[in-house]
Nucleic acid binder design. Structure first.
Length: 531
RNA sequence: GCCCCCGUCGUCUAGCCUGGCCAAGGACACCGCCCUUUCACGGCGGCGACACGAGUUCAAAUCUCGUCGGGGGUACCA
């Protein structure tokens, strides 16, 4: 892979070299094409694309494909194009298209052309490019490299079953390649609407992949692919390669699920005498059973938007997804976007699939949350408080920031703010039974003791001259130490009384934030519930 | 069935191209200890992998072949 990248660089200099030599010897006109082609492919800017079909939300795998393309473009100071592959009119929706835009924007993966942006090679919706495809299909038909196929769905199914039983490599035998005009007329009279198929070549097709290496595909394993549906709408394999060429895409970076489509697309391009982009098939993102992550099997569990809602930061998602299949060296895990742009390289993308591990995502997410300054973190967390009805309008911003500060590094997701802090906003919480059992005690005797401690603490907190951290801390500890009470026991008992929980921020932070009145009330309530 | 791809700790991976530095390194997770008013953070430690079998070689995780395993595709989806 390193060699191939190297190869590419060498080529460009060779190209320039040839230009000089050739310019001296050849007629300008005849050179013109050659030079331009060479320039477009080798010397020109890198152009990559993301080509989702708007049949659902953007999922983790799609986000990674988008990121790899985006990084590749940025790294090479090229262009990133967003093309919408919506030739499946039955399944494509506008809503889904906008959802994809939104998810991409949230991730910060901006694009140079396509989507709702215009560009020199538009339109960027395949549904609006039909005339372009028609032109190429016409050419294919005229040169007899494609033909009409009148087989019905039922017939095709029959052929497939037979082929399977015969252990044949192909499931369509090209029977409509040479139909007599009588038969065609008969079919038309029957009202059959033909599809158009491409004639696959009988010579091997070379598939050169930047990640997987090159191999020759035996043409015997390829069948005459449908390129235009009976309703006149062209198919993915045709539109994809035509647009890649038309849009001057230099590198097609996509998931390995498309590996088997590549020879078909190459065959189409060859039939049209179009020059090819380079291909790079990145390994799949898998679930924990090793299957490809897909909308169909995993639902919105794999939707980028779901992670957004759950309180994951885009930089965490990006960092996480970048390390799925790609690595820089044997130590670095945390990469800023700038570093990714700088360090990303297809040569360091592996060949095998990677399992989506939410634990690692969480770890990265907490890392990036902790990197946020308190003010930004507060902004990020406010919507989650609001969604839970814990706050309405932001009246006391300063206090919110103090709460966030007290919570410190205890957030794996932004949403974690809710269970971590809800007691700051409401008295309506339960005492966690596990916690009370452990710290308040099970027996009447122990409960009695806890009650006594809480009552004393209540008295002490009522009496302190000031209600600041230092005063509170020293008075409480004076009490525990002089009375031979374990600090932990006192603190945890009080924590449960104030929050219902056995975990959380430093207790004295909570006390100060709650304020004297609230603390005394809650202590009283706890004492009552204990007796 | 057929075609294609892949195979290092539970997971992400480094190492593989250019065989010896690898009794295989890092990270996440998990477990233990320390720190500590709890939880988390942090520190220290532990568990844990070259799918298998042949071959080549003085030497193989690294090269070759085979087996097995996993995945993807197999549509008038993309």
């Amino acid at each position: 892979m390193l060699i191939q990248t190297q190869h590419q660089i060498n080529w460009s200099s060779i190209g320039q070299f040839l230009f000089v030599i050739a310019g001296q010897k050849c007629k300008k006109d005849s050179m013109h094409n050659t030079v331009n082609d060479t320039k477009a492919n080798v010397n020109g800017e890198v152009r990559v694309r993301m080509a989702p079909s708007p049949t659902g939300f953007l999922h983790i795998g799609g986000a990674r494909t988008a990121l790899f393309n985006w990084l590749y473009a940025k790294h090479h100071h090229g262009k990133f194009i967003l093309r919408i592959d919506d030739t499946d009119t039955a399944r494509s929706t506008d809503e889904s298209m906008h959802e994809i835009y939104e998810a991409m924007q949230w991730l910060g993966l901006d694009w140079d052309e396509g989507g709702e942006k215009d560009g020199p090679y538009g339109p960027y919706l395949q549904s609006k490019r039909k005339d372009i495809y028609d032109r190429y299909v016409k050419e294919l038909l005229a040169s007899e490299k494609a033909y009409h196929c009148y087989c019905t769905q039922e017939e095709l199914e029959g052929i497939r079953t037979e082929a399977r039983e015969a252990k044949s490599v192909r499931s369509y035998d090209g029977r409509c390649r040479e139909l007599s005009s009588e038969v065609i007329e008969k079919y038309i009279a029957e009202g059959r609407k033909p599809t158009i198929r491409i004639k696959m070549p009988d010579t091997p097709i070379l598939v050169d992949d930047l990640i997987l290496g090159s191999r020759n595909i035996d043409p015997a394993t390829l069948e005459d692919e449908v390129i235009v549906r009976f309703n006149g709408m062209p198919n993915y394999n045709l539109t994809s390669i035509i647009d890649d060429v038309e849009m001057k895409i230099t590198h097609v970076i996509r998931g390995t699920e498309h590996l088997n489509n590549t020879p078909k697309q190459i065959a189409i391009a060859n039939a049209l005498e179009l020059s090819l982009p380079k291909f790079a098939h990145i390994p799949l993102v898998l679930d924990d059973t090793g299957r490809k992550l897909s909308k169909r099997h995993h639902g919105d569990l794999v939707a980028v938007n779901r992670y957004r809602e759950q309180g994951y930061l885009p930089q965490a998602m990006l960092n996480f997804v970048a390390r799925l299949g790609w690595s820089y060296d044997d130590k670095q895990e945390i990469f800023s976007l700038e570093e990714l742009i700088d360090k990303f390289d297809l040569a360091r993308v592996g060949k095998s699939g990677s399992v989506f591990d939410i634990k690692k995502l969480e770890w990265l997410n907490s890392h990036y949350i902790n990197e946020l300054d308190v003010s930004t973190r507060t902004d990020a967390v406010i919507p989650y408080w609001q969604a839970e009805g814990l706050i309405d309008t932001i009246e006391n911003r300063a206090k919110l920031e103090k709460i966030v500060e007290a919570v410190g590094e205890r957030l794996n997701t932004l949403k974690d703010i809710v269970p971590q802090t809800s007691y700051f906003f409401t008295q309506d919480f339960e005492y966690d039974p596990k916690a009370t059992k452990k710290w308040w005690g099970n027996s009447d005797e122990k409960k009695q003791k806890t009650c006594e401690i809480l009552t004393n603490l209540s008295q002490i907190l009522a009496d302190t001259p000031d209600f600041d951290l230092e005063t509170i801390e020293s008075s409480v500890w004076k009490y525990t130490d002089e009375n031979d009470i374990k600090r932990v026991a006192a603190m945890q008992s009080m924590r449960i009384a104030l929050t219902g929980l056995s975990f959380g921020p430093s207790l004295f932070d909570i006390v100060v934030l709650l304020g004297r009145e609230e603390v005394l009330e809650r202590l009283h309530r706890a004492v009552v519930s204990l007796t």
